[in-house]
Amino acid sequence: MSRHGLRLALLYAAALLITLFLLIPVYFIFAASIGPQNSVYDFPKPLVPQNLSFDTLSFFLHYQGVPEAFKMSVEVGIIAVAVSLILGAPAGYAIARYTFPGKNVLQLIVLATRSFPVIILSIPLAVTFLSWNLYDTAPGVGLVHTAMGLPVTILITAAVFYGVPVDLEEAATTLGCTRIGAFFRISLPMALPGLAAAALFTFVGSWNEVFAASILTLQNHTLPALVLTSLNIAPLQFSFAAAVILIVPSMVFIFFIRRYLVAGWGQVTK
């Protein structure tokens, strides 16, 4: 084999190995939760599940508190998405379109807040939310998830609006639009897929977040918070099914926004 061919073979071998490392555990958790409930205690486990059944999954979905937690998670996610888009999209637009004094500092602050440990925020916010009547509510958790998702929303929307040439807006203004009209008729439609990606990204972040959600709720847990507090109480098949239910929506969303992932995170360092 030629040197080049050997190199290529090694490259694909490495890529394949990494792929297996990342995919096999996902396969196992699916295998573990597609079967009758008591199959989780089988040993040795068959690598290919023998008895296909939605028994375990349906056990989880009907477990006490799960439907409510599911609803809570969706509500929290929607609040986080809505607020971070309403606040973040204009900010992203400003960063993409304007040059102004203090721009770099502002960008840096936004970046810094994103890397701020959420553990530190949750505990004082829990105390504050008690007095604001936001403790143990969807808006309370949603707002904290907004704070976590907002910086990334700003970054992604900025990247999206960078991708819409200014010329297009200017052309629209010469053709009879106001500046705001040009934004809504030209930039916004072109930016919509990117904004949707930012929204999905925020939703996935919220859907997955467990620390703040556990700290800020007592009865009205989100799905991950419920799973976390039940780790030591509920049977193993509950956790396995929970993991699958948590993973599936995120995997689907990530599939839709995969094109934006690199653009969004690549932008981070510019």
């Binding site: 040439p165 010329d167 297009l168 200017e170 052309a171 629209a172 203004t173 010469t174 053709l175 009879g176 639009c177 106001t178 500046r179 030209i186 439609p189 072109m190």
Partner: peptide
Amino acid sequence: LPPRKRQIAMVFQSYAIFPH
């Protein structure tokens, strides 16, 4: 006056054709 009130039309170097 803003551009839209000037009775002008412009051809941009990049053409600025709306892609959507």
